[in-house]
Design a protein around this nucleic acid. Structure first.
Lengths: 196, 196, 196, 196
DNA sequence: TATGAATGAGATTTCATTCAT
DNA sequence: GATGAATGAAATCTCATTCAT
């Protein structure tokens, strides 16, 4: 029951933060959205900043955990990258809300919580860089700085405009393949040839 | 002299909107930054929204004008795309401020000013799509929906994480090539072969 | 056990009211200080006002009882006044807390609880005035309005700055004599001569 | 006109702080009392704490300036002390408000503004101690620690219960003499004999 | 007895906007 | 053109109190 209220709050907050920026969302709106009083809201979260921090950290942790899981399987790099892309894009389609929370609050994510959030963001880049390193060793990926490649890869996956693709898409499966292909082969006509 | 004050205001506003979100920037701060009074600020701009709109529209127009110029030259698609990428990345390096205005206000750009700003954003995608179409016709670019490709292309160029690459870079020239290469060839080991 | 909880609450409340004003102390702090929940706090005291009233009344009663005891002995006025001063100053040194409760809540003591607390305060002035009257009759004290003298006497003893004297004192005994002397003889050089 | 509004605010605030404790007075009440909006209140004072600090500091400065003036005349110590007592008591009768501000906020005066207010309070004790020193040299005052005597003297003059004497008084002149006498001679029957 | 979750009124403070000068 | 004083709505947050368990 208590956990219930907490979740109602988080749900309402994610919904609102995904539609508007942190500063444009009021605690009154969050409380109303969760169908509780402002007093109750403050019973669970000491401040608006703390509430947002929890959501941001949860989101980053969610991705990190999956990235780590994928990195630790003993598949080859091609399969891992495939899994990674599929996982991120499917998650985004299902939880566009969560992604929009980040999109709408770039300035908070990168400035305000430097200690905590920025570190977690870097952790995500690093774990993906490990997969990239494996790919370089296996001859799948070109031999450039793995951190740069990882940064670019995540940035394409989380790009602010990715969802426009899905909005216009009749066939999501096909779009995911398009993005996968874009990452692996860019936009030139040359087809990507399987390594075997 | 009058134009002078107006520019001081715009400069102060861009500086602040590039550091924080629309809602986190106050008219008092903008006036202080421009070294004028709040009364004067309201003499030049009827409201905060209008001031922001002017900045956003200016920014989008700036890119549109360049995109159009590039599209209208009679170069081949490869050169046009090369010009486009060089132009965007060089602009960003020199005017990170302007880019950050957009990054910090994604939710405004895509929601609030639908009438005006969103339309301009779409115009940018479309003009680039024309270049892409030419590329497809010339066999340079793979035969997919040109709007999707244009969206993806712009989204990589304007991605929130691009500047991390520059921050870490000793050699900016090299990084621009890396991004160009990423767009054309993705991350696979196969080298992009010139279209001779 | 029940009395135990009640006392824990009173102790916590005195501690807090002695450090801050009534309005600056929250029921949450009192409950936390007593290591109980707010629900329990309200089981023992119907309201914050009632809790404070109990403490204030207890304090005033404590002094009243001692004043009465001193007044009712059959000592001469000089001894009684000596006892009175010794008692008040020693109590304050040992229970600075209790005194501070009054100091921090002057406005409550004199305005809010007029019915109850103010009456008790007056009773204290009156019982001391009886000792003063005896002193006048015995030729020890000058023949002025006994209530005025009593008011002045108590006010010096409970003065907000008395404790500064103790803070600076190496020798508390000496300081008590200084105050006793001040009350009896003021600050002029003339020494107080015993009445015989 | 601007100074006018500022004074209206200060007047309203003194009036309210003299009737209730800092925490019991709301900014809304202060604004209403000054017949202005809350926004205007914050145009003149950045916070409630700052507003109170200004009032407290003003009050302490007012007394300090007079104490210094008295100390610097070339009268003998007896006259100076007489002036001092007359000045303080007359001020209190005319500005009971100001005194009550201090009475109602003992805990703020002595804890919160240690840096500023506490220092000013000490300055007041010290300047009066100089007069006391002169009195000791001239054989008027008994040879005890001048700071202790000064502390006690001020504490009697500003004692929380002094105004009860005035409230009951038909003849204020007579009451002032009573307090003067109390300070110089205490409560013993021995009359204070003039030094000549 | 005791708890912790919930409430709602009200507190301090911010801020876009207006207006007399 | 320019200023600074004034406004009021709304934001964040606090806190005495209640109540189901």
């Amino acid at each position: 029951m208590a956990e219930d209220t907490r979740n109602k709050i988080l749900k309402s907050a994610v919904e609102l933060f995904s539609k508007s920026n942190y500063h444009a969302v009021s605690m009154t709106e969050i409380a109303d959205g969760a169908d509780i009083s402002k007093g109750t809201l403050y019973w669970y979260f000491d401040s608006k900043a703390e509430l947002f921090r929890e959501i941001a950290v949860n989101g980053l942790d969610y991705f990190y955990n999956q990235f780590e899981r994928i990195a630790q399987t003993d598949k080859n790099s091609e399969e891992k990258i495939n899994n990674l892309i599929q996982f991120v894009l499917n998650t985004l389609v299902e939880h566009l809300n969560m992604l929009d929370v980040f999109r709408n609050n770039v300035e908070l994510i990168s400035n305000e919580f430097k200690n905590n959030v920025e570190a977690k963001h870097q952790k995500n880049i690093n774990i993906v860089a490990e997969i990239v390193k494996q790919g370089i060793d296996e001859g799948l990926i070109k031999d450039e700085n793995p951190t740069d490649i990882s940064t670019m890869l995540l940035s394409v996956l989380f790009t602010p405009h990715t969802n426009e693709l899905f909005e216009r898409a009749e066939n999501k499966e096909k779009k995911i393949n398009f993005i996968y292909d874009f990452i692996m082969n860019g936009i030139s006509r040359k087809e990507y040839q399987d390594a075997e």
